[in-house]
Design a binder for these strands. Structure first.
Length: 561
RNA sequence: GCGCCUGUAGCUCAGUCGGAUAGAGCAACUGCCUUCUAAGCAGUAGGUCGCAGGUUCGAUUCCUGCCAGGCGCGCCA
């Protein structure tokens, strides 16, 4: 919320009134730093409401309604209402204070929006946070599947939302490019190339054969290598190809990563030993049964974790530890891990690593858990993917429903809820499909504005008369537009981009209602009036906010549909 | 057994610093286009917010217990 927004003026006026009342002895208690304004659900309760009188009742030892009366009296006597753009203040119910704004004042948000443009909604609530946002992190041994896709959409959107709240965000993809799985991958590729049986616990999707073909085409000599060096040759070539594919698929999906972080790099330049020393110096490392352990039980983990196995090789946990330390040493003061539900057992471990490193896990680490995604088509759950051999891939989903519908649907729900995607519904261009509903509102506004231009109607800031927008629909729409910055800040704070989606759905609905009841353009031979211009400005502002919101989701705002 | 998540309308789900009469879409029924995109709008109907306690002016929201469902508990990655 910008300092000069309508809301903040109102909040400030009430705060001033409270301070005055406290000084003059009308109220005797600690005055809060901020006044929280709600938007009442019921229109009869005004444009804003605050429950401050109820909250203070106990501390002040007064009836809530008495406090409300004091606030209102003080507002009146000190002429605080007019400068704040308030036309009416009322007490309601047990002590709520309901506030109605002057039309001109309320309408000024349109000016704010048109002036700020793409920047409207951005704030500084997370300024100073340097966030490492890690998501997807699929193994480079196969395609991006549906579970990853949820994160590809939500993680990307969260990155945008956090940035909009003023944080400095780096999106990171962790590549698990060492360990058994990689070797199995190499063995599977080699087996496919040679036409021999693949390892039982290896990879069996059709894409393995495709990759193997591509490799042998380029490097036919690989097939002549012995088992070990052949495995390595295929592994490395397959790794590169598969990683490039993942990158390409994600970029096409609109999800960009700033850093692709290789697990192998943790073992270069002595970095792992450096991190081990660091953990040792904090006293949480010990040796037992020939293995090197991190005593994570010091910090609430259920059992200690092995970093170096008794055979001298590194356990996966070694990488986890080093990776965390790398993040911290690269200057991030908040590491967000976006994990699948099947990995939620990691949370305790990761936090224990932070604690062992001397950090505060509650402050420096956050884990977001994404529940499972199911996909149904024709009433049947889709389980098999031709390509991956197991689960539906990102590409298959996009082929079915398109990028916008896929992203929007995945982002629209909180991630801690398991979700079901209905392909048939997402293919429909009706309003059961929220992405079209929102996009349609945007396209509709663009059409109106095109027509306005053709009719020679002047719109834009110079022709905007906020005091003319007094219709109930106009006031509701304007009120909702003013909410947007708070929604973005709240979404960032809660790490919940779905709030932005839900908000623009509301906004689209509100615009449609306005459109239905308030004619924007002159009818027939009527002469354009200032009201036409004002409504065109309001429409323009709405389109801007829808577009800004969709942008935070990584979804297009089409001008025509 | 322990840990995490979920339980809101017939269906899919919003509602999270505790607020006024619990919301939306779909499905059912009824209206609104000879002028802005009907991919839209208005209305009717639909609820013991899993169950039982507790905290307080007030609980779908916070705490405890229970019931039901999903997932996880390797010197795998």
């Amino acid at each position: 919320m910008s300092a000069d927004s309508v809301q903040s003026k109102v909040a400030l006026a009430i705060l001033n009134a409270l301070e005055i009342a406290e000084k003059t002895g009308l109220i005797n208690c600690q005055i809060p730093e901020q006044i929280i304004l709600d938007r009442p659900k019921n229109r009869d309760h005004g444009d804003y409401a605050t429950s401050i009188a109820l909250t203070l009742a106990k501390a002040a030892n007064l009836q809530p309604r008495v406090i409300a009366e004091v606030i209102i009296k003080t507002l009146n006597e000190n002429n605080l209402l007019v400068p704040a753009g308030i036309s009416k203040v009322e007490i309601a119910g047990p002590g709520f204070i309901n506030i109605t704004l002057e039309s001109a004042s309320q309408g000024s948000v349109v000016i704010e929006i048109l002036t700020a443009g793409k920047k409207y909604g951005q704030g500084q609530s997370l300024a100073g946070k340097k966030i490492n946002l890690e998501f997807v992190s699929a193994n480079p041994t196969g395609p991006i599947h549906l579970g990853h896709t949820r994160w590809a959409a939500v993680g990307d959107s969260l990155g945008r939302v956090l940035s909009a709240a003023g944080a400095q965000v780096s999106r990171e993809f962790y590549i698990n490019d060492r360990g058994n799985q990689m070797d199995l991958f190499g063995q599977s590729l080699r087996a496919a190339a040679l036409g021999i049986d693949r390892p039982e616990n290896g990879y069996h999707g059709e894409y393995i054969a495709d990759l193997a073909n591509a490799i042998t085409k380029k490097n036919p000599e690989f097939t002549k290598l012995d088992e070990e060096s052949g495995m390595v040759a295929f592994r490395e070539a397959g790794y590169k190809l598969q990683l490039d594919l993942q990158r390409e698929v994600l970029e096409n999906f609109g999800t960009h990563f700033d850093t692709w972080f290789s697990e192998r790099s943790l073992y270069e330049n002595n970095f792992f030993n450096h991190t081990l020393d660091k953990l040792k110096s904090n006293g949480h490392v010990y040796e037992e049964e020939g293995a090197v352990w991190l005593r994570t039980t010091d910090f609430g983990d259920d059992k200690d974790r092995v970093m170096i196995k008794s055979d001298g090789s590194f356990a996966y946990f070694a990488s986890d530890s080093a990776y965390y330390i790398s993040k911290r040493e690269r200057g991030f003061n908040l590491c967000i891990y976006m994990l699948g539900a099947d990995h939620h057992g990691y949370v305790g471990r990761i936090k224990a690593i932070a604690a062992c490193a001397g950090d505060d896990p509650e402050k420096d680490i956050e884990a977001l858990i994404g529940q499972m995604v199911k996909i149904i088509e024709g009433g049947q759950e889709l389980k098999l993917s031709k390509r991956a051999g197991t689960i539906i891939t990102l590409e298959e989903l996009v082929e079915k429903v398109g990028i916008d519908a896929a992203r929007y649907t995945l982002i629209r729900y909180p991630t801690d809820t398991p979700m079901v995607m209905d392909v048939d519904l997402l293919k429909k261009n009706t309003n059961d499909n929220p992405v079209y509903y929102v996009q349609y509102a945007h396209a509709r506004i663009c059409a109106v504005l095109r027509n306005a231009k053709d009719l020679g109607i002047d719109y834009g800031l110079k022709f905007y008369s906020p005091e003319l927008l007094v219709h109930e629909r106009e006031r509701e729409l304007i009120g909702l537009l003013a909410e947007y910055p708070r929604i973005v800040a709240a979404a960032a704070f809660a790490r919940q981009p779905h709030r932005v989606a839900r908000y623009i759905e509301d906004l689209a609905a509100q615009y449609h209602r306005f459109y239905n009841d308030c004619r924007v353009l002159p009818l027939g031979e009527e002469k354009p009036t200032k009201l036409n211009s004002a409504r065109a400005c309001l429409s323009m502002a709405t389109a801007q906010v829808i577009s800004n919101g969709l942008d935070l989701l990584g979804v297009n705002a089409p001008e025509r549909m």
